[in-house]
Design a protein around this nucleic acid. Structure first.
Lengths: 191, 191
DNA sequence: ATTATAATAGACGCAGTGTTGGAAAACAAC
DNA sequence: GTTGTTTTCCAACACTGCGTCTATTATAAT
């Protein structure tokens, strides 16, 4: 919340560190990326890193937080929770955003991240429609949310990893199909 | 495949290392567990570790492989791919196995693991029924598999993490419901 | 131009890594 | 039980990364 007033230099270095990390995450696992190597690649002094972040985990955490703010902003903006199931076009807006920032999301969600981003994105469930009836017990509701969100995220991840060849709208339709209709697609003619 | 003929001592140390790692994964992330600390807790000499494994990643990899062999063995044994959707009782057998070895699976799938176990378990999809019709394009099929497997795994993970309070059969029914019927459970009366 | 802030360079002790060589202990086979 | 093998232990090694610090230089903001 507290807006840091940053020098031009500071902004530049922070952005440089983030970009470099994203780049390195394409090839190496986060646990193998040392502050040393990161700074070397970014052509920054190692001391400089420590004036901005406590460690690489803190850097990653901030990146996640920033992304999360934008995503939840989008979520609130075009209120997706009115529709259930949501309109494909609406969901497609999100997928477009993911696609535009593919490199970033791949870094945060991909194999080389620690997948600690999943719990963050799982907060999406907090924004989903509150159950109208109390018939279904809360534990089951949690399971259902987990199932849906995780399933979608992993599909999106695999979509991005493969170059996001399908259109966002196509993916949106597929996701909604699976979410609300199950996975009968599998080897079964769609009727 | 090559059966190592192990000394009693060797067997003991390897088992001890595995157990200790599982134990430590309850509280610490894998990336923070050093060979030093592991050996200290296992009351083994650090040199001894290196006579068995190259590093902690190798240890974890072997543990995953062993588990995977048992799981795929179970899969082949009671042929689950005949039924689609599978009978709840059949799926429940697996969940029982997961529950019996909860500590191990939590260590391999939980937050403190690197979640590198997901790709392994994703191989389950290789064992799933080959699509009978060619109507659905292969990319969609991959997405559907990813969606289903990942969703189920994350539900199982959360089930275990919470003490596996529901019965395996109950969970099996829930999973099959969601897989083949979608997530209408959410805040909607079941009819 | 002055002041404040950021980046650099080099050093520090500390901790973990992966390897080595040799002594001590536990094992297997006879 | 004695013998020979294998495993574990112990202590040291050089190496790398960590996190902190101080002094110095460079660059914004006003």
């Amino acid at each position: 919340m507290a807006e840091k007033k940053l020098d031009q230099r500071a902004k530049l270095t922070e952005q440089l560190l983030k970009n470099t990390l994203v780049e390195m995450l394409k090839t190496q696992h986060i646990s193998k990326i040392s502050v040393r190597a990161l700074c070397e690649r970014a052509e920054l002094n190692r001391s400089t890193f420590y004036t901005h972040y406590a460690d690489t985990a803190a850097l990653l955490a901030q990146m996640k937080q920033e992304v999360w703010q934008r995503v939840s902003g989008l979520l609130n903006q075009q209120d997706i929770r009115i529709h259930k199931p949501p309109a494909p076009a609406l969901l497609a807006r999100f997928l477009e955003y993911f696609k535009e920032n593919a490199a970033l999301f791949e870094a945060l969600m991909g194999e080389n991240s620690d997948f600690a981003f999943k719990p963050d994105l799982m907060e999406i469930t907090q924004l989903l429609p509150r159950p109208s009836s109390q018939e279904v017990d809360p534990r089951t509701q949690e399971y259902v949310k987990t199932f849906g969100v995780t399933g979608c995220l992993s599909v999106i991840q695999s979509w991005l990893a493969d170059g996001a060849k399908e259109s966002p709208l196509h993916m949106a339709e597929l996701l909604i199909d699976m979410l609300f209709g199950g996975i009968r697609h599998l080897g079964q003619k769609q009727e």
